[in-house]
């Protein structure tokens, strides 16, 4: 790659037309199901996990999956890993205030938002 090649590509239409031609991303219309497999003492284990979540009675179709190590992940917050689905939903509510109207909003001081902090402990088996 040369500076000239990059400069030639640095045109809004070049990037825009390329992006507009990419396939439509998949849309989440309902709960996702995570399937985990393990083998222990010669036994094959399969765990199917589906979260059905409501917030204030309304269905929440945010994608939630469980990884093999038991951590919960939502692609809506791609840099987070959670030890429980409850933590995940709390973080979604805190990070997307416009999508969860009503409730009791914390004070204007953003330090008081009390969002659940990411917890990452290598090898931890919590939360699924």
């Amino acid at each position: 790659m040369t500076p000239e090649e990059l400069a030639a590509a640095a045109d809004p239409a070049t990037l825009g037309n390329y992006l507009s031609a990419l396939p439509e991303p998949p849309h989440h219309h309902g709960p996702l199901t995570s399937v985990r497999h393990d083998v222990f003492q010669g036994h094959h284990i399969m765990i199917r996990t589906t979260y059905e979540v409501t917030v204030d009675g309304a269905p929440l179709n945010a994608p939630l999956v469980v990884s093999d190590d038991g951590q919960v992940h939502s692609h809506a917050l791609p840099t987070y890993e959670f030890l429980s689905a409850t933590e995940t939903i709390r973080a979604l509510i805190g990070n997307f205030p416009d999508d969860f109207p009503g409730g009791v909003r914390p004070a204007d001081d953003v330090h008081d938002r009390n969002l659940p902090h990411h917890v990452h402990r290598t090898g931890d088996e919590g939360g699924s």
Binding site: P25, H27, H28, L60, N61, A62, P63, S74, H75, A76, L77, T79, Y80, A91, L92, G94, N95, F96, D98, D99, V110, H111, R113, L115, H117, H118
Partner: peptide
């Protein structure tokens, strides 16, 4: 948003230090 859908909006930038 929470459903990972790209959507239009019209608002200011948001930052919430130490929130996550």
């Amino acid at each position: 948003g929470p459903n990972v859908n790209l959507r239009q909006t019209d608002r200011g930038l948001r930052r919430a230090f130490a929130s996550g």
